[in-house]
């Protein structure tokens, strides 16, 4: 039997040196992680300023940041941000609200899953964008069709990941719980749900990304507000820095959503990182 120490505090190194060493390590890790990204941005800035790349298509970053600042400080972009977040947020919330419970249900009951799987696969493989005209015909050109097309595309990642997570729960753990007399409810709450959680989070992250991707497409057709509309509109009016500002904002929201979900996942699935 091995008695390995679980947390190994560094008693040996004096505190000051340890802090310095840790700071150095942190800097190195940051460079390894973000170095390439910073290099890319620097190359863009320099290349665009010096004229290696076409500055009309790729304006230098300071112009983009300037456009972004102007849009934000004048409040012109804030309106677009608000409406875009509302569309994506509503669609994402609806997809999660339907996808997770439905996935948990389908994953547990084989007959339901087998009956619904073919139709789900067909729906999933049908591009939401291809269906957008249909949604517009059905729901009109207003908010509803926009939110619905985002919802449609956002639903499948979280639904399928939840079904997969539930189906892959170790039967042996369920049997163990049953052998202690666990009720169906207890098996679900104490075994199935926690076991499926990491997989559900993978689905949530995919869905969040999808919600933002579809947002742009939805707003490019028949919208007069929103970040997606701004991308198109700025391009038509040849306000390329503003176009990039809107694109950067969208990327930022994607990163923020992912970061938020990863943080929640870390909190809920701490056991998976241990060791």
């Amino acid at each position: 039997m091995t008695l390995q120490s679980l947390d190994t505090p560094d008693f040996a190194t004096p505190p000051a040196r340890a802090i310095l060493a840790r700071a150095g390590q942190g800097a190195r890790r940051a460079t390894a992680r973000y170095g390439l990204l910073l290099g890319f941005l620097a190359l863009w800035q320099v290349g665009s300023s010096v004229g290696w790349i076409n500055a009309t298509v790729f304006p230098p970053l300071h112009l983009i940041l300037g456009a972004l600042w102007e849009g934000l400080s004048s409040g012109a972009l804030l309106d677009d941000i608000a409406i875009s977040l509302q569309r994506s947020g509503l669609a994402f919330a609806a997809a999660v609200g339907l996808g997770i419970p439905l996935g948990l249900f389908m994953g547990q009951i084989r007959a339901v899953e087998q009956a619904l799987d073919p139709i789900l696969q067909v729906f999933r493989q049908t591009s939401a964008l291809a269906l957008y005209p249909v949604f517009i015909l059905l729901l009109g050109l207003g908010e509803l069709s926009k939110v619905f097309v985002i919802f449609w595309a956002t639903l499948f990642p979280v639904l399928l990941a939840t079904i997969g997570g539930v189906k892959e729960v170790d039967r042996k753990l369920i049997e163990m719980a049953r052998s202690y007399g666990a009720t169906r409810r207890a098996v679900f709450l104490r075994v199935v749900l926690p076991a499926a959680l990491p997989s559900i989070f993978v689905g949530l992250r995919l869905s969040a990304t999808t919600a933002l991707l579809l947002l742009i497409a939805a707003e490019m057709i028949g919208a007069n507000r929103g970040l997606g509309f701004q991308v198109m509109n700025a391009q038509y009016n040849f306000q390329i820095p503003l176009m990039f500002a809107a694109i950067f904002l969208l990327a930022l929201f994607g990163l923020a959503a992912n970061f938020a979900l990863v943080s929640v996942q870390r909190r809920l699935c701490r056991w998976a990182d241990a060791g």
Partner: peptide, 27 residues
């Protein structure tokens, strides 16, 4: 009756104590 399986069949998201308490909680 209580069963001890070939694999420990521990719940990975519970600590040692929580795993040991699990059987009692189920009862």
């Amino acid at each position: 009756r209580a069963v001890i399986f070939q694999e420990p069949r521990l719940l990975p998201w519970l600590t040692v104590t929580e795993n040991v308490a699990f059987g009692l909680e189920m009862r």
